[in-house]
Design a protein around this nucleic acid. Structure first.
Lengths: 148, 148
DNA sequence: TTGCTTGCAAAAGTTTTGCATAACC
DNA sequence: GGTTATGCAAAACTTTTGCAAGCAA
């Protein structure tokens, strides 16, 4: 997303373009695929912008979430984590979480359309989004266990 | 689960059967399908066992989670919620979360085997569990919106 | 100028922990 | 009797909020 488009989307919401908001977005883009927490975002933004406050980062991720710029993820590690929302309408990757080393992998795979339409029909529920996480063991940890 | 089996499973872990643990299990069984939070569990246990402490309930749900007696759920409302784990090895329901009224519905539907085996093959990741949540609008809220 | 935004500090909310006492086996 | 478990209070964390000052448009 470029600065002009970003400013435009903020304006639509009656919000202003501030250096803090730009800095948070920059870090999110720079670290896409890393699922940073608010605290981690704050630490990274501070490297270039030491005056920023943690509360501002919390307020910014809330705003970005409402604007659908980012998605909030929960890996049960005590804090929210974020990733850039995909630009396309139908996005969706899933997450593999290794219960040994806690690493998170992304999976490009949807295939949920079938399940979604069945659920929509059966339960009269209009689905707008989904989160799918798989828990288990990653290749590396499987090999370690087997002593390879 | 009966008391004898419960005691046996506790003993396997070197843990003792206490009135507190029995009380928490009783409430979980009595309110299965309700996704109680730790605080809510505490309130309900207190009705019959007023001396119990909140920390004990926190410690108990941690223990039960390790024992796979319950599953921890996260609906992004600021706390963990719990449900009894299914007795069968493979049995999975999913959750529909209405973003208007925040009600949670359960869906009896697996159909993920196909996706799981594809992921296991492609990513060399051994899947042990999954969580699938759908976000959207429930029938009631859809009807309200349309003024029915 | 006007209203949105920020930084700070304090508050709020959930969860964990230390420790003396109590309960289980 | 020895060890695990509990209750209480305090601590640790994450997140939110109030408010005066600052900044964008």
């Amino acid at each position: 997303m470029d600065v002009t488009a970003f400013k435009e989307r903020l304006k639509e919401k009656g919000c202003k373009l501030t250096l803090q908001r730009r800095s948070v977005l920059d870090i999110l883009i720079k670290h896409s695929g890393e699922h940073l927490s608010t605290e981690e975002l704050y630490e990274k933004v501070k490297e270039n912008y030491p005056e920023i406050g943690l509360a501002t980062v919390y307020r910014t991720v809330q705003l970005f979430e409402e604007m659908h710029i980012i998605d909030r993820l929960n890996f049960d590690d005590g804090c929210s984590r974020f990733e850039l929302a995909s630009e396309e309408e139908i996005h969706h990757h899933h997450h593999l979480i290794c219960e040994k080393c806690n690493k998170v992998f992304e999976v490009e795979n949807d295939l949920l359309e079938e399940i979604e339409s069945e659920i929509e029909r059966k339960y009269h529920f209009k689905i707008q989004d989904h989160h799918l996480m798989f828990y288990g063991q990653c290749e590396e940890c499987l090999n370690k266990k087997r002593g390879k």
